[in-house]
């Protein structure tokens, strides 16, 4: 069976919907991982002792096990305790939490690196510790780690393919559905790869703009 790309055009619609879902999952999960990462970093550094240790342990669990396994746990495992999430929601939560933990590690390092004088100055001006952290220290810390967080977001885009395994009809599963009908695996996976590559380029362009703005605001 040679290659025959004429099987592709009837499935333009299927693939287009897949692309939109991939972008939707990536954007929502990326936002969750960004703000979740900030929150986790603040808790890990300044939370009450009682919360810190369990948090560290959960972070360690998330970083030491495969994302695919975590997605299965969230989608199939939570049903065991009565939480039945739709696949899309489970996928977004899984991807978002996984990368929130990685972002949190970056942000923690950056928070520690922000000059101590900043915190002290903010407190002298009458801000509480919490206010100083949220309004003065964290914004500077986050700005410093925008490039590596961007790398995590690119990785998140590629890992969004994994949610096909829990039945979200994004680009990978759309390609699989088309293959189920046509048996043209090579053609559809090659097109899917190309589409991912294009989304990736678009995302890199957006991230570069954000990085430039972050640099200018310094």
């Amino acid at each position: 069976m040679g290659l025959d790309f004429s099987a592709i055009p009837p499935f333009y619609g299927t693939l287009a919907i897949g692309v939109l879902w991939t972008i939707a999952i990536t954007v929502v999960a990326a936002l969750l991982s960004f703000f979740g990462g900030i929150l986790l970093a603040m808790i890990a550094l300044h939370g009450p002792q009682l919360v810190k240790q369990p948090f560290r342990f959960v972070s360690w669990l998330f970083m030491g096990t495969p994302l695919l396994l975590q997605l299965f746990l969230i989608y199939f495992g939570l049903v065991q305790i009565g939480i039945d999430l739709p696949a899309f929601v489970a996928g977004v939560i899984g991807l978002g939490l996984h990368y929130a933990v990685y972002n949190s590690e970056l942000i923690q390092t950056a928070i520690v690196a922000v000059d101590r004088g900043q915190m002290e100055a903010a407190r002298t001006l009458g801000l509480s510790r919490g206010q100083a952290l949220v309004r003065v220290v964290v914004p500077q810390a986050v700005r410093d780690v925008i490039p590596p967080i961007g790398n995590n977001m690119i990785a998140l885009l590629k890992d969004s393919a994994l949610v096909s395994a829990i039945g979200v009809t994004e680009l990978t599963l759309s390609a699989q559905l088309a293959i189920g009908r046509t048996y043209r695996a090579f053609e559809f996976y090659a097109v899917a790869a190309l589409l991912y590559y294009i989304i990736n380029l678009g995302m890199e362009a957006v991230l570069r703009r954000i990085e430039r703005r972050a640099r200018l605001s310094r």
């Binding site: 090579f186 090659a190 790869a193 990736n200």
Partner: peptide
Amino acid sequence: FFRGTPALIQLFLLYFGGPQI
């Protein structure tokens, strides 16, 4: 190419698409 596309797609391309080529 390999950093710009998902590893899962690369794997499927090789395993399911490979026989065609």
